[in-house]
Amino acid sequence: MEFFRPATLIDALALKSTHPTALCINGGTDVMVELNFDRKRPETLLDLSAISELSEWSDQGDSILLGAGVPYTRIYQELAKELPGLAMASRTVGSLQIRNKGGVGGNLGSASPAGDAHPPLLASGAAVNVASVNGTRAIDINEFFLGPKKNTMNPDEIITSVLIPKARGGQQYSKIGTRNAMVIAVCSFGIAIDAKNKSVGTGIGSAGPTPLRAHEAESYAATHLDWANGSAVTPEMMKEFGALVAAASRPIDDVRGTAAYRRHSLAVISGRCLKWAWTSTQDMRSK
């Protein structure tokens, strides 16, 4: 096995173009499990963790440009105000040890339907920046996932960063897992309210072949939220919103939960997330 540890992105892209089958490794929290269990035996490992530009974030005014390798711990410690949904999701990932190493780039690279970063990225309408020796492109997060553990990237591309709009209203993330910590999502839900544009974004995790949006639920919320006066979300709205989210999911039965439970609990947590996110939207306004 060859092992490359480039110090710059340019070197990494050059290596990726000459070794398109090289397996990228950053935090290693997905890759190492595959290696330890003999599920993957790549000829080349391309270690991105020494590239400093991947492990930084910057403030772009309306958005945050989040380096692919910024670990979850830093996301919820440093970006809880700008990206509350992603910060909440980051706090639910694995354990401290996992959060210290794993990051959004690896989550997107693995493209597991259960990845906790995905629903908040979908909800806020992020763009995934990928690069190769031939240049860069920004992939709309809505186009990024193709199927279970499949994304749209080309073999010579590397994820460099994710551009995420700063919160323009309340955001929430909620995840169902049978344990109170260290658990892969049975299903999850992220919401981002955009008070400026009077719109609502959603993301559903672990209840379909890819992370999903709940478009009808989004329009329902956008038309039913009381943008003018900020009156509270009613139980009826929670219920209807939840039902629309559940209807948008496409879950299956597996060892972690039944499809029926996933639908049921998604409806519950999404309704709650709407309520909480709306409350924090009002709190933000009054400040």
Binding site: T29, M32, L35, D47
Partner: peptide, 21 residues
């Protein structure tokens, strides 16, 4: 977590770090 070590001051699972890293 039984393999926890400090790597450059950060708490990690040693089983999830590649030797080359």
């Amino acid at each position: 977590g039984s393999c926890s070590v400090h790597l450059d001051g950060i708490l990690v699972c040693a089983c999830l770090v590649a030797a080359g890293q």
